[in-house]
Design a protein around this nucleic acid. Structure first.
Lengths: 244, 244
DNA sequence: AAGTGGTCTAGACCACAAC
DNA sequence: TTGTGGTCTAGACCACTTA
């Protein structure tokens, strides 16, 4: 059961998640009770409950008082893309036949439309432009701006494979959270040509800013998606906190 | 500090959230330490920590070990639309000048494209069609299908105002989670006409299915948005659980 | 009545930041 | 060294479901 997590609660969550994914715990059935999970993992109830909270937040289970933790059946359609997940991670879990072409990698000034209000105007960053294809068809253009510090440079193979894997495993960065904004816009002729768009030049634009655990921003991204291939899937829970 | 929450942890979370919103705790500063919050609210540390977890999940604060809970500054641009939030709730918090027209309210069979795989084909439901306008311009068409049970009927004024308020406050339903899918599609002439779309007839389509705490599905929705007015804003945290 | 999850507590020990 | 958050524990009491 021990994996790469140092925490007991994370290990337990990871272990149960895998058992759900592999069908050991079937959708529509209940997990072992919290008491049984305590015995199984040799931990206290609060620790088990923290693990279950993570699974609840992810949408893997629903806790029902007096009954137990019901395994939900939401992954069948395709996996939630919400959260912070890189293209390569998706490529793996969804088993897409995707390729990545690195079109540019150079130091550049962050464009105003991306910097606006989020980071100093005119600041330079490492700019990486990538074209993602699935079955040879262009699907997404990613425009990344990586801030220095904390990122000095990126090896070519990391750009072609997974930036996140490089940041987390090689640089030891603690990627923590991101803001994301989805709109539909008329894009530049360059992007339109790369995506092979029709005359309307409409693309789905996902702008995001990603932060480390110490709240340092380190990545600004604009992704341009072909509208006919774009799909965003989300799982959300109703919050108990209200404003105003 | 006591509000509508019965839990201590929820009340604390709510109270701190409001203090952040009203500027008592400023972005870029630290909250009182957990120990101080314990004294302030007369609770144990774990309870305070559970409250802070909620705020962390919402993106209101970032906890930094050895330093404290830093108030984040992400709301300035506009409030996260992720989670489950109804149009009326947004209308209030964002102070939009929005109106809602109820176009239809009748019992109907759930259309196949919405039912697909999620609920029995051919099942009937209460269908409500609403047109949302901002400053007189049509922005969104909402096609709701409310399942019976648990929803028998909906009064006209609830349809015109907030369905969620009616479900939660009048019917006492415990709305818990939803799956959501965003795509861009060519829509029917009817929807195109309502939204006053151009010839391309492209709209952003948000399909969602909403569930009660007991995992009963009760609402299927397709929202059609004018592409030029659509904006989806999200806050996401990187998950420690990985699959495969 | 027995079993389940929901909430809360008081305390322990650790890791990290700042002085 | 002191103060901060991170993790874990053992136990208490409550609310709900099921039999």
């Amino acid at each position: 059961m021990e994996r790469y997590n140092k925490n007991k609660q994370d290990s337990i969550a990871q272990d149960i998640a895998l058992k759900i994914q592999h069908g050991l715990y079937q959708a529509g059935t209940f997990l072992p009770s919290e008491h049984q999970l305590c015995d199984l993992y040799g931990s206290s109830r609060e620790t088990v409950r923290r693990a279950l909270s993570q699974l609840t937040e992810l949408g893997l289970i629903q806790k029902i008082r007096g009954k137990g933790s019901l395994v939900l059946d939401l992954q069948r359609f395709s996996f939630p893309i919400s959260g912070i997940t890189s293209f390569q991670e998706l490529n793996k879990t969804l088993e897409m036949h995707a390729t990545t072409e690195v079109l540019q990698k150079k130091t550049a000034i962050i464009p105003a439309h991306l910097a606006a209000g989020r980071v100093d105007e005119g600041r330079t960053a490492l700019h990486i432009e990538r074209l993602r294809k699935i079955d040879r068809f262009p699907i997404v253009v990613d425009e990344d701006y990586l801030l220095n510090p904390p990122i000095k440079d990126v090896p070519d193979n990391a750009a072609a494979n997974s930036l996140y894997a490089y940041f987390e495993k090689e640089l030891g960065l603690d990627i923590s959270y991101a803001t994301k904004e989805i709109t539909v816009e008329t894009v530049s002729p360059r992007i339109a040509a790369l995506l092979n768009l029709d005359n309307s030049k409409l693309a789905v634009v996902v702008r995001s800013m990603t932060y480390l655990a110490n709240t340092t921003p380190f990545q600004l991204t604009a992704s341009y998606h072909r509208p006919d291939r774009f799909k965003f899937i989300d799982f959300a829970r109703r919050r108990k906190i209200s404003f105003k």
